[in-house]
Design a protein around this nucleic acid. Structure first.
Length: 154
DNA sequence: GCCAACGTTGGC
DNA sequence: GCCAACGTTGGC
């Protein structure tokens, strides 16, 4: 089992949206960055666990955890001309972009702020801090444990 | 809303 | 295939 961190803007889709979704499950789509795509397509497997990171908002940081319930499959939005994720250069024969399905595991009592994550030895080396744009990033087991500890007793 | 960082595009 | 220009992301 592997660990990951997925980024999203909570104004668009945050952990509250996931909590309110049917079966607390959603398609994680719209990934349009090649390195993130490669991680998603080749690395993310069913059963992997994921940190839900809120970006570009008031409370930047990790909001909770999710589990991958369906491994990578072609992102349908890339074929939809009405979608903002439409990609005319992609085809069903040779899909360019992928998505997964995720289910909420836990919404933390409070978002763990990025400032704290950067200050703590166990989490300061998260890949996301080295590569700001990576919206699907690997997390080590040690980093995962450190984040759970920072989430506090519960 | 600003601005730095970085990914992507396109001309050569 | 290089690299400058451009666009987007994301923290503050």
């Amino acid at each position: 089992m592997n660990y990951w961190l997925f980024k999203s803007e909570p104004d668009v889709f945050g952990i509250e949206h996931l909590a309110a979704a049917p079966r607390q499950t959603t398609r994680w789509d719209g990934i349009r960055n090649y390195q993130a795509r490669n991680n998603l397509r080749d690395g993310v497997k069913k059963g992997d666990q994921v940190l839900f990171y809120h970006s570009s908002c008031k409370q930047v940081g990790i909001a909770g955890t999710m589990e991958v319930v369906k491994a990578a499959y072609p992102d349908p939005a890339q074929y939809d001309p009405d979608s903002e994720y439409y990609d005319p250069k992609s085809s069903p024969q040779d899909p360019r972009w992928f998505c997964v399905d995720v289910r909420l595991l836990e919404q933390y009592p409070a978002v763990i702020p990025t400032k704290l994550l950067k200050a703590e030895a166990g989490t300061s080396d998260l890949a996301i801090f080295r590569q700001g744009r990576l919206s699907v990033a690997p997390v080590t087991a040690a980093q995962w444990r450190a984040v759970q500890a920072l989430a506090g007793p519960r």
